[in-house]
Design a protein around this nucleic acid. Sequence first.
DNA 1: CCGTATCGTAATTTATGAAGTTACATGAGA
DNA 2: TCTCATGTAACTTCATAAATTACGATACGG
Lengths: 153, 153
Amino acid sequence: MRQDNRLSGALHVLLHMAEAGRPVTSEALARALDTNPVVVRRVMGGLREQGYVRSVKGHGGGWTLSCELERVTLKDVYEALGSPQLFAIGNRSDNTQCLVEEAVNISISEALADAEARLMARFGEITLAALSADFHRRLAERGGPATLEEIHI
Amino acid sequence: MRQDNRLSGALHVLLHMAEAGRPVTSEALARALDTNPVVVRRVMGGLREQGYVRSVKGHGGGWTLSCELERVTLKDVYEALGSPQLFAIGNRSDNTQCLVEEAVNISISEALADAEARLMARFGEITLAALSADFHRRLAERGGPATLEEIHI
DNA sequence: CCGTATCGTAATTTATGAAGTTACATGAGA
DNA sequence: TCTCATGTAACTTCATAAATTACGATACGG
């Protein structure tokens, strides 16, 4: 089953924007993600609605962060994307009069809901600042200072 | 994203077989699932390989359980199906030289792995016997004795 | 004001994999 | 031998994220 990569892409973009410190165009972000500017704009739309980023048209325009990295978690980003479907498995049908299926559905649904709650709790604990710090840690370990080229901006 | 319903379907079929107490044809099982006999055979293939069910061709043939309901968990069934992809979300790319993406990927992957472990633990605790008991509880609550028609066999 | 850079978005195409379907071979009982 | 079943390959359908195309709107620089 094909995967939904929007969360991964959005986080990647947000961290790149944090490094840039100035407006970054969809074009440049798309290059970092190896994708298309339209895909970037689509993904960023939800983040803009939640006030996490701003976009400016025209010369010198592009995307800038408008939030504090400490205050935004992976859960916030996930929800800004519209809380995409999390699981690739699910119940065969949800309105059933078959009691066997009812028993099966409930047990699967409860287990999935539990796993989802756990995942959201984890996502809620990870801030963009933590991700950024992790990135800088890796950068330091690998040696050498960051250049704009190194982070593809 | 479209869902994978094989686990739900397999469990449904197994419980119906447990009620029947005699070989049930793919045709009959497909009717209970409102699907196609070929789909049933495909799903059941993995269960047969693990020895949870047997199939017999020809007159009076069909599928029968060959395991004790107490000894088989949802996890066993899930794994017999080939451990289908669990999450609909994932990392954009797994081989990256971008440290930003690396940091993002690891944090998402760890959270997903944690949720998956939790889900598998839950699945490992639920036996087919428990599902069957739950079904019979619902049947009793709804009143009236079970007939073969009621459970679509 | 004009030209260009940039976002906004609708419409279309592509890609993927489960589900559904068709077709036919194989095997087992009556 | 005939019919009932499974076994399986091949093909079609379906849903949806991603990718692409196209065009409109806006903002800055000259």
